[in-house]
Design a protein around this nucleic acid. Structure first.
Lengths: 109, 109
DNA sequence: TTATCATATGAACGATTGCTCATATGTTCA
DNA sequence: TGAACATATGAGCAATCGTTCATATGATAA
């Protein structure tokens, strides 16, 4: 017969966050899980930038950048302000930097 | 004529990590970007567990869990040890906890 | 050895993702 | 108002991803 771990499961599942929260957590990290978006966040590390500057920097189309900025904004990772025709994006949150920093540490060890 | 941001780009690109590192960083977060894998890592938060216990806990097939553990192991996020027929997995690294904790903070604010 | 348990793995399939292309929206200036 | 610039968006497509199913590997005990 297969081995039993009811005791363990009872204990572990008590400490497990709700499915909804775990889903949100996965969705958040999914946003970090793309090189283009990582690059955008790094570009905004020090200062705000407009969309076309980011596109120039990453040598990608304005459309591609704009789509990704929308994803980042929906996850509350970037915020924006308008100045005339131009829209400037910036990091929304100190968490962005600390999440990236933790990931950086993990891979550079 | 389109506006110019050569100065900014020169400055920002100097501070940008290499493409290879940014790729690795994206790949790492991609691993965190799935609910099943997040659940597995949470399950291992306090103690090691065998594959079938994780499958029981998440009400998923042994195969699905095994595939995901392979992904986690390839990213050096979990480690394993064998004890007879059973293989126990554990978190490989304190970074796992801190990355998840940062993400948790971001969404619960 | 043979039977059983525990885990791993390869192929296949549906779902999701990121880009491109064309076009729309919004702002400024002449 | 019309032209040019800056950005946003919807549809479509190729590529990637996570699961299932069938089966393989590995370990233990009779």
């Amino acid at each position: 017969m297969p081995h039993n771990h009811d005791e363990l499961l009872k204990h572990v599942s008590a400490d497990m966050p709700s499915d909804e929260l775990l889903q949100d957590l996965g969705d958040l990290f999914k946003v970090f899980g793309d090189t283009t978006r990582i690059k955008i966040m790094y570009a905004l590390y020090e200062d705000e930038m407009c969309v076309c500057a980011i596109a120039d920097l990453l040598k990608m189309t304005q459309s591609a950048i704009s789509h990704q900025l929308k994803v980042l904004k929906a996850a509350n990772l970037v915020a924006s302000r308008r100045e005339g025709k131009t829209i400037f994006y910036r990091l929304a949150d100190e968490h962005v930097k600390s999440i990236i920093a933790q990931g950086y540490e993990h891979i550079t060890e």
